[in-house]
Amino acid sequence: MNITVSHLSKKYGSLAAVDDLSVEIPAGTIFGLLGPNGAGKTTAFKCMLGLARGSSGGVTFGGKALAPPLFESIAYVPERDVLYDWMRVSELVEMNRRAFARFKADRAFELLATFGIDTRKRARALSKGMKTAVAAAIAFARHADLLVLDEPTSGLDPVNQRHVLNLMVNEAARGATVLFSSHQIGPVERAAERIAVLDRGRLVLEGGIDDLKSGRKIVEAIFPNESYSLDGIAGDPRVGRIDRSGRIVRVMALDAPSEIVQKLEAAGGTGVRIIDLNLEDIFLYAVAPASATADVVEGS
C-alpha cells in the first residue's frame, strides 16, 4: 500500500509541528522517518492517520482517502501508552481479535512467546521495553498492508530490537509497507530502504539510503597555498557545502562525487580523496545548522 502525503501541515498556535510535508512512500518498502526529538515525527504520523485535529493537506493510502474500513489493513502503534494498564496481555490480544478480521491470535501468541512475555500478566506489570514488545507483537499479527510504527525499538534490548527489525523485514518481504520512526540512526540504517529526515517540522532530506550513501560524499583536497579559487565549484548545484580550513578544503558532494574530484583537481587541488559518509553523518549534515558544523570543521 503506497502512501502519498501532500502539503501536510499542523500548527500549534504559531508553531508549525509539521510544515508542508510532502512525501511519497512506495508500496512494499521499509520507510524510516528520522529526526531529532521534537522534530514532529509523531505529529506527522497522527496527521497522516487523521488523529490530529486542525491539520491541513492530503494523504492517500493506495490511492484512497482515509476511511474507517481502511484501518482493517493499517496497523498503527503509537509511541507509548498503547496498552490498557489494567488489562491482561491475553485480553489485549482478544481485543484485537475482535476488532480486526485479519488479526491472527495464534501468531500474536507465538510472537509474544518469542519475546518472552507471560500473557497472563497485566500490562501494568510489564517493563517499558516489554510493553513496546507487546504492542509490536500485536501489530505484526495484524497481517496489515501498512504498518505505522512510532519508535518501535525504543526501550528494547539489542536482542529484542533485532527481533523487531527482523519482523519488519518479514512484513516487507510479504509485500507490506512499513513506515517507522526513530530518533536513533542504527535501526533505520539497517532495516530501512528509504528515509525522510524531519527537522523542526520540515522535510530536510528524503531518499533511498543506498542512493544517499552513493551520492553523498565528502571530497577532500589539499591546495599548495591559500590563494586558490573555488569559483567553478561553489556554484555547482551538486555541492552541498564547502568547509575550508587553511589549505584543506572539504566539499560535500550531494551527487556525482567523481566529477567534484575532477573539478577540485582542475582547480589545483592535490591529495584529493573521497570520504564515505554513513547515515549518521548524512543525518547530522541535514539537521545541524550550517554554522554549527562549519565551526566543528574549522576548529579541527
Binding site: 487523521g50 484501518f71 503509537p78 501508552d81 498503547v82 490498557y84 476488532a99 480486526f100 478480521a101
Partner: peptide, 16 residues
C-alpha cells in the same frame, strides 16, 4: 481513553 488509547480507538475499522 487517555493519551494514545483514543488513537487506538480511532484506528479501528469502525466509524466513530
Amino acid at each position: 481513553e487517555n493519551g494514545n488509547h483514543l488513537e487506538i480507538a480511532w484506528t479501528k475499522p469502525i466509524g466513530r
